[in-house]
Design a protein around this nucleic acid. Structure first.
Lengths: 344, 344
DNA sequence: GCGAACCGAGAAAACGCTTTCTCAGCGGTG
DNA sequence: CACCGCTGAGAAAGCGTTTTCTCGGTTCGC
């Protein structure tokens, strides 16, 4: 006699019938509206419990105009950086009762804006994580995506907070560190060309080169994963550099593994640095010198900003810039020449 | 004159007005119903395009009774294994036009069933990944979660496919491998107590012990992350074992890092094996011997099964068992005694 | 030339909720 | 005693779609 509704699931109407009240009253009770007679309220609650009634979130969303869900668009879910952001975001959002819907663009930038739009329509807000789309495209769709928070990208559109990591400064710190160790020939193993963070690193290196005219910096093409690093061994050796700035920790790990296979000692023969300080970086042998990015914190902060937007609160800090922290471990050491000079 | 609807967003009604037809007709056109006069259809399409109309998915979901979204519940989003499953699932689902909603239980098993229920109600189906809840609890909620696919867990409830990795066999293979290298004292660094996969490993080891009465296997308490492995160094050394079976690759990496700090050579003094073959395993020094689990494939397969359930197709393979593949790398080598015998 | 079958599109119901509107019923006041 | 304000709960109107129902207008067949 119970499941009368078409879907087979029990709905508010079933509870109403069972409790002998209107479904409006059931709704009131379920939402803690205290204008309901306590006696009736408890009768409704009993009926709901007995039927194991759980409100249908879709109906609820339609009526309330909100979904209690946010979306995140990432270029590549396999990347530990984005995983960490997702984790931080998901965790922070969950604490406020929000769920997160994920959309992986698989690095195809043309899909990104469609994906973002679709995700946005199902959610109350969106986090766009290191989008690969062009600036023009971003500017165009940004208004339609509001509430929107950007990570590692900025826009001229007002009301769009963006959290960016100062990769330029980070790479300068790393280069500085290598120079202090006596390295005069450096190489930068670049990331994906469309990545904005790669652009920031390149810019940082320009600044660095201007400040250190005597240091030679070779640019090498690359990517963002292990294999990139592993395959770059030849190019790196060819460059004659003794201090290698890898795009990120993954690339650095791939490179170190490749160097190890060739019998090249790190940091004895060559110093290698990463970027990001993913959890694994501490446990490589040798442990990886890197620039630590407070990445889960970034995810949390993204939620804070988005929440403020959703709640239409005054946004105190419409954006933030994160400074990476130099993390010196054992993959970087004195340059050969310098060491020889000291020892002999 | 456009945005007349309360939400501010343009809806089907706006398009209807602009095209001078009823909103029913607009709906028909948008859904490719060919009973509409081509002239009218194109007028509607023009209006829709001009207004940049995009159907509201929530209203759509309510009317159609489906959300084109699936949910996944994981115990810990920080775990690379679950990340890989999520990735495989998300990717496979995306190809069929489904999105995925994530729910992280943060290893608190009491929250799991509530989380699962909530997620399920917003979605068309659910993947429960290595749930930590008790068997009784699982049996109880499983029917209400249908369509449901389990990973690394089984249930008596009918119509619930489960994909399980044969951890028991995998750990036996690894132990076998170590014994062949001459190790006679092994230690197992266990995982989280509530983890079903840990139970499977323990069971596998029992079988192994029965088959190899002369081999000594010490059981050590543990966990599932780096730190567990790192902190277990003392216990491992104390055990006197020369072949260590770590719960997974993460634990193995932590352990190797700790052993390295103590100046203990792997595999010279001690052999270490992991489990899972996460991408990082290839790049540790020494490269990690492990049991490879086709984990992204697992995620994909989970989607296939779930899709079949959603579409109410006949399910040809209501569940599958995955055999890990022994991946011998350089973290395992001949036992000291055996090596001495050979060399001297 | 008239009824039947058909076609296309608007009206209306349905999906499952929330919330405003409305109106009995009741106690208090002048 | 009539009137007023208040309370609490049902009726009904949304929220934005899809889909069934209905019906005027053709076309076809006899």
């Amino acid at each position: 006699m119970v499941r009368k509704s078409a879907t087979g699931r029990i709905g508010i109407a079933d509870v109403a019938v069972k409790a002998g009240v209107s479904h409006a009253t059931v709704s009131r009770v379920m939402n803690g509206n205290y204008t309901v007679d306590p006696e009736i309220a408890s009768r409704v609650r009993a009926a709901a419990a007995e039927l194991k009634y759980q409100p249908n979130p879709v109906g609820r969303s339609l009526a309330l105009g909100k979904t209690d869900t946010i979306g995140i668009v990432v270029p590549d879910l396999a990347n530990p950086t984005f995983q960490a952001i997702l984790r931080g975001l998901s965790r922070a959002a969950a604490q406020d009762g929000y769920r997160v819907l994920i959309a992986d663009s698989f690095e195809v930038s043309s899909e990104e804006s469609i994906l973002a739009g679709e995700a946005r329509r199902r959610c109350d807000g969106l986090v766009l994580c290191a989008p690969r789309m062009t600036d023009a495209e971003l500017e165009e769709i940004a208004p339609s995506l509001h509430p929107l928070v950007l990570i590692n990208r900025t826009t001229a559109t007002t009301g769009v907070p963006s959290l960016v990591v100062d990769y330029g400064q980070g790479v300068q710190d790393l280069a500085e560190h290598l120079v202090e160790l006596g390295h005069t020939r450096l190489a930068f193993l670049a990331g994906p060309p469309r990545s904005a963070s790669n652009g920031m690193r390149l810019q940082g290196l320009e600044t660095f080169k201007a400040a250190h005219p005597h240091v030679d910096v070779t640019m090498l093409e690359g990517g963002s994963d292990f294999d990139t690093g592993h395959e770059a061994v030849d190019a790196v050796l060819e460059s004659g550099a003794t201090g290698i700035l890898a795009f990120n920790d993954l690339v650095a790990m791939g490179l170190m593994s490749g160097l190890h296979e060739r019998g090249i000692d790190v940091p004895g023969d060559m110093s290698v640095t990463g970027f990001d300080d993913i959890p694994f970086a501490k446990y490589t042998t040798p442990a990886l010198t890197t620039a630590a990015v407070p990445i889960t914190e970034l995810g949390e902060q993204a939620w804070r900003q988005l929440r403020a937007l959703i709640r239409k609160e005054e946004n105190d800090a419409p954006g933030s810039r994160y400074q990476p922290r130099l993390e010196v471990r054992s993959s970087s050491g004195p340059a050969r020449a310098a060491r020889t000079a000291v020892h002999g």
